[in-house]
């Protein structure tokens, strides 16, 4: 009976080779490097973009200028919607100048291709969005995109 359950003879299990572990991790690394994009900015406003079904993907991300609108993440700034351009809060009147600086970063040939993308929280009132749209018209940045996630339309 006793011989049926042999005690550990002290040899132990053979070590599992971890030689291929780096290869696996590198594979993961390359996967993430290929499928992801660099984060553009640190968000200072809360943005939950609405969902929609009839959407198109951006063809060239370097041509996109983002305008974020939503309630500020810092509680002490209140809850009314704020605009974020680049890394900082901005007012409606700053939009034109911001678009101009963005244009300066591109070749003249690319300027007509620039798209302004609205990343706007779904609870935002349209008033501020309309004002920004007016500013864009003033600097003739007419190509816009309403950023949405794919999914059934909400509300």
């Amino acid at each position: 009976m006793a011989s049926k359950f042999k005690k550990d003879d002290g040899k132990g299990d053979p070590a599992i080779s971890t030689a291929s572990l780096p290869d696996i991790v590198f594979m993961l690394l390359f996967f993430f490097m290929v499928t992801t994009v660099m984060r553009e900015v640190d968000l200072k406003v809360n943005v939950v973009v609405p969902s929609a079904t009839e959407i198109q993907k951006f063809k060239n991300k370097s041509l996109v200028t983002y305008i974020y609108i939503g309630s500020p993440t810092e509680k002490k700034l209140g809850t009314s919607s704020r605009i974020q351009l680049g890394d900082a809060y901005a007012e409606v009147k700053d939009v034109g100048a911001y678009i101009e600086t963005r244009r300066g970063e591109h070749d003249e040939a690319e300027v007509p291709l620039l798209v302004t993308a609205f990343k706007v929280d779904r609870e935002t009132k349209m008033g501020i969005v309309t004002e920004v749209k007016q500013e864009l018209r003033k600097v003739s940045a007419l190509k816009i995109s309403y950023s949405t996630v794919e999914g059934l339309a909400s509300n």
Binding site: L29, Q56, V149
Partner: peptide
């Protein structure tokens, strides 16, 4: 390296509804 890329990148492929504003 993997963790670095996980932190600084986002996976969301941006999409949106494209429209053209009327010029002034």
């Amino acid at each position: 390296l993997l963790v670095f890329f996980l932190v600084v990148t986002t996976i969301d492929a941006d999409a949106g509804m494209f429209r053209k504003l009327a010029s002034m």
